[in-house]
Design a protein around this nucleic acid. Sequence first.
DNA 1: TCGAATCGTAATAATTGAAGTTACATGAAA
DNA 2: TTTCATGTAACTTCAATTATTACGATTCGA
Lengths: 149, 149
Amino acid sequence: MKRDSRLSSVLHALLHMAEHDGPLTSETLAQCMNTNPVVVRRIMGLLRDVGIVRSAKGHTGGWTIAADLKAVTLRQLHEALGEPAVFAIGNRNEVPECLVEQSVNSVLDDAFAEAEALLLQRFQNVTLADLATEFTRRHAKWRAERTNS
Amino acid sequence: MKRDSRLSSVLHALLHMAEHDGPLTSETLAQCMNTNPVVVRRIMGLLRDVGIVRSAKGHTGGWTIAADLKAVTLRQLHEALGEPAVFAIGNRNEVPECLVEQSVNSVLDDAFAEAEALLLQRFQNVTLADLATEFTRRHAKWRAERTNS
DNA sequence: TCGAATCGTAATAATTGAAGTTACATGAAA
DNA sequence: TTTCATGTAACTTCAATTATTACGATTCGA
């Protein structure tokens, strides 16, 4: 299966927006992420629906962050994207009649549910502000290394 | 993408084999799982490579379990299948130059790694014998309910 | 007001990876 | 020696994401 990279994509876009004054166009964001403006609009549209970003048409239009960076968690973004399936591994048949298969599903489902709960927990504990901080740290380190050499 | 259901599939097959005396053919297992004998051979072949099952050709041939049910964990099976990717969600670009994207990847990777570790831990703690027990429990319950009504 | 810039969105194609299928070779048992 | 079974390569189908094309609807600025 092809992996869903939209969460990674929106985070990349949102951080660029956070580092930038004024709106960024779909075109600009698309170049930044090596993709197509329509893809950007599709994804950002979902975030607009839940109030995380705003869009404006026409000259000087584009996308801006509409929420406090400290208040937006990865979990909210995951939800805004429609809570896509987390796992690439799954049961062959979700509603089997066979008791053997039901037993297998039950045990696997438990394990996956636990892992997903942990992942979502982690997502809930990370905000856009945290990511911005992580970026600042890396940026400072990068500048220091550049200066030294 | 389509989800990888091979783990679920082999477990289903192995439990049927555990409940049955003598070898089962790919054809029988395939019917049991609503699939094609070639698919069964492909998957079971990987388990044979690590000694979990044996195969025999010709009349009276087929697949048999070659290991102690208590000694085979879900984790071993996952490994035998080549440790397929666990998540359907991933980074857009695994080796980005952009520092922003690197920051995003780093944080996401941490979260995914933790969730995967938990999942594999769970897999390690479940044996085929455990699954057989779970089946026995469900089977007994099913019979009891059948008798009552 | 006009026109260019920008989003909004539908429709469709490309891409990717799993699963399914066909075909045939190999080997073992009756 | 015939039949039944695995072994495997090659190819097709299927499902899901992502990319692209096309065009409509707004908004700003000259």
